[in-house]
Design a protein around this nucleic acid. Structure first.
Lengths: 234, 234
DNA sequence: GTCTATATATCGATAGAC
DNA sequence: GTCTATCGATATATAGAC
């Protein structure tokens, strides 16, 4: 009744040659690095085929372990995906924070943060798409509070700079500006990955620069942003 | 693309005699509206569980038809998903275009477009998320040129207003501004759906207003956006 | 911590009747 | 245009050996 599942031919054409492949030695996964290997593999696959295209069974085959092996490290599929999500957010945070130290002026810090946000999306397309895919956004964050906790540092990278920019402003205004700047960065990142800024090697730079300039333009007219009734050329 | 399809129990028990679903009678699908019903159902399900969570077999069960019935209307699963994508884009376009006629001044038109973009995301959360999910963005658009064609009107809604705003400007600058405004709108829409603007009934309004104001702020400093070297207060 | 083997279930797609 | 029936493949998850 059970057919030989020898070669994993997937209908939409995934590379089948993974039955007993070469690079990864099966023995390696007996020393306790299977968990890390699963996460790394999941990031790679999900970036290409989406979270829906990832399966534990296929991953086990790729890594040369039994389909039951992952269950020694994760309770179920959802828990592995949550771990992947947290791992991606930590990488994001680690790439964004060092940039903040390099810029002194608050406005420049904010523009640099926006630029870094877009550049992370460009250099880690896979991770970025993963973090904002439908499956992760809705399904996991609700059940796994550790994901929300891992997201906070990214939001605070924006908010802290805004607070430094307008120390006198109230909290509501600061959060409004921070959200707007984050939206600018996020929008540029998404449209970049969508090809809206072109496809060449310059696309990432164009998008990042546009995000940084749009941020500065917003700050430039931030009084207008916050109080649009006030006449402009007063 | 094999999906997770383990979403616990779904409507496996949904009987053919249509016990649970009230609106749609099984007989209706014998008159030729199965195609439309499949698309409507797919939009509903994909919005909740992602494209990976959608299956033809399950949809057939939900609609009370045989699993083979959809193949009379779509060659395969991918073709149905492409049709869903095109349908969503047409709704998006139809909601965005009427707004343009209502605003005369180019700057206001652009801000209104950005606002409408965000409001569409709010009122049609499902469709919007669907259009920018990983599966649709990468998998379908490449193979189905009709999707790219359906996307153009949305991009042109921004570009046309920018051109009206700066009739003297060259094409490159106009496209740069249009892309930035579209990024602002898109970023606000995404962050709104992510809960970044709060979760209450006011969240959509906040996000839409922020997008419109950010757009005006960008245009306000558009000379600075396009030529950042020029001193600001000249 | 990993393996073998298996239970249970769903999927996409097709063939052929009506 | 839809149905019945089915094939072949894949999935998640568990039990028990080592």
């Amino acid at each position: 009744m059970k057919a030989p599942r020898s070669r994993g031919r997937v209908s939409t054409g995934s590379p089948p040659a993974d039955g007993g492949d070469s690079r990864l030695q099966r023995d390696s996964y007996h020393h306790g690095n299977l968990r890390a290997a699963l996460i790394a593999d999941a990031i790679e696959v999900i970036s290409e085929r989406g979270a829906g295209g990832y399966s534990l069974a296929e991953a086990s085959r790729r890594l040369g372990v039994a389909v039951s092996a992952p269950y020694a490290h994760f309770a179920d599929r959802a828990e592995l995906l949550a771990a992947v999500c947290v791992h991606a957010l930590e990488i994001f945070r680690d790439e964004l924070e060092p940039r903040l130290a390099r810029s002194a002026a608050p406005a420049d810090r904010l523009a640099t943060t926006a630029r870094g946000y877009v550049q992370f999306a460009a250099s880690h397309k896979e991770l970025f798409q993963l973090l904002f895919s439908a499956e992760f956004g809705a399904l996991d964050k609700a059940r796994h509070p550790e994901i929300a906790a891992a997201e906070r540092p990214i939001e605070e990278a924006f908010l802290d700079s805004v607070k430094a920019l307008t120390p006198t402003g109230d909290r509501v205004m600061a959060e409004a500006v921070a959200a707007a700047v984050e939206a600018i960065a996020h929008g540029h990142a998404m449209l970049l990955l969508d090809g809206r800024f072109g496809t060449g090697s310059r696309a990432a730079g164009r998008a990042a620069t546009s995000a940084a300039r749009a941020t500065l333009a917003l700050l430039d007219g931030s009084d207008r942003f916050l109080s649009p009734r006030r006449t402009r050329k007063s």
